[in-house]
């Protein structure tokens, strides 16, 4: 681009434009990284997903405060409010995940380029995961500040592990569902309707893991793990793995045509 010296361009470009490609097509992992880079660049440029998610989460906390008429939450109520908020905020990003590709020809461009379907799935799911992590980076302190009865710091590791595993499930399932509904009429409606039942097991797992951590006398890490934590982290991990495999096996069928 502009860093190139002038004389590099002064050679007659037209002759070289049709020369056989000198570079070698990158491998699938590298392609996924390139796609992820494009995804994040687009989000930074348009700010269509993350700011909206964060604002939504903040509004949801305020709504829960008034709707439940509580100044502070704890235990399973706190875990439920946090997860419902994250889940609904995620739906905002999931609805938008493939819109730019569908409307601006990205699907066709990718179908024509040397891009394996698995790389598209991985890049989209990774982008969604990053959006969710950024959202939580903003929403978790807000949640602790606005609604939580006791400080969060003591339970930090358990909370983060649970959120991460839950986020992976949302990212994988969200990418699959988003690709599934993108070519249908009424995709804005169908996306959430498909997502929510598929994520109920994640809600069960994540809230079950979180609620002891947000209870008044939070257990320390090892006693939490041995009581319920480890079991629920394993359930979430298995759910991530299973849906990851399903999405990987099925994703290519959603990219045809």
């Amino acid at each position: 681009m502009s860093t190139l010296p002038e004389n590099a361009l002064s050679a007659p470009p037209r002759a070289s434009v049709h020369q056989p490609a000198s570079g070698r097509p990158p491998g699938a992992a590298r392609v996924a990284l390139i796609l992820l880079g494009k995804e994040l660049r687009l989000e930074l440029r348009t700010l269509e997903s993350v700011p909206g998610m964060a604002l939504f989460a903040l509004s949801a906390f305020v709504i829960f405060h008034f709707a439940l008429n509580r100044a502070a939450l704890q235990g399973d109520l706190a875990a439920g409010v946090l997860w419902v908020t994250i889940l609904l905020a995620a739906l905002l990003a999931i609805n938008r995940l493939f819109v730019a590709d569908a409307q601006q020809g990205g699907f066709e461009a990718l179908a024509l380029a040397p891009v394996p379907p698995g790389a598209i799935l991985a890049a989209k799911a990774a982008a969604l995961l990053i959006y969710l992590l950024v959202l939580e980076l903003l929403a978790l302190p807000a949640f602790a500040l606005l609604l939580l009865a006791q400080p969060l710091a003591a339970a930090a590791f358990g909370v983060l592990a649970t959120l991460l595993l839950g986020d992976i499930a949302i990212a994988v399932i969200g990418t699959l569902v988003s690709a599934l509904v993108i070519r249908s009429r009424a995709r804005d409606l169908l996306g959430p309707l498909l997502m929510l039942p598929l994520l109920i097991p994640v809600v069960i797992g994540a809230t079950s893991a979180l609620s002891p951590l947000l209870a008044p006398h939070a257990p320390d890490l090892s006693s939490w793990l041995s009581a319920t934590g480890l079991r629920w982290l394993a359930v979430l991990g298995l759910y991530d793995l299973l849906f990851g495999l399903i999405a990987y096996a099925l994703f290519e069928f959603l990219l045809e045509d």
């Binding site: 070519r183 249908s184 009429r185 169908l190 959603l254 045509d257």
Partner: peptide, 17 residues
């Protein structure tokens, strides 16, 4: 979902997924 997709072949494919 199925009937919101117009092309019949794509409908079958997406419904299968």
């Amino acid at each position: 979902l199925r009937f919101a997709i117009e092309d019949r072949e794509r409908q079958a494919r997406y419904a299968s997924v």
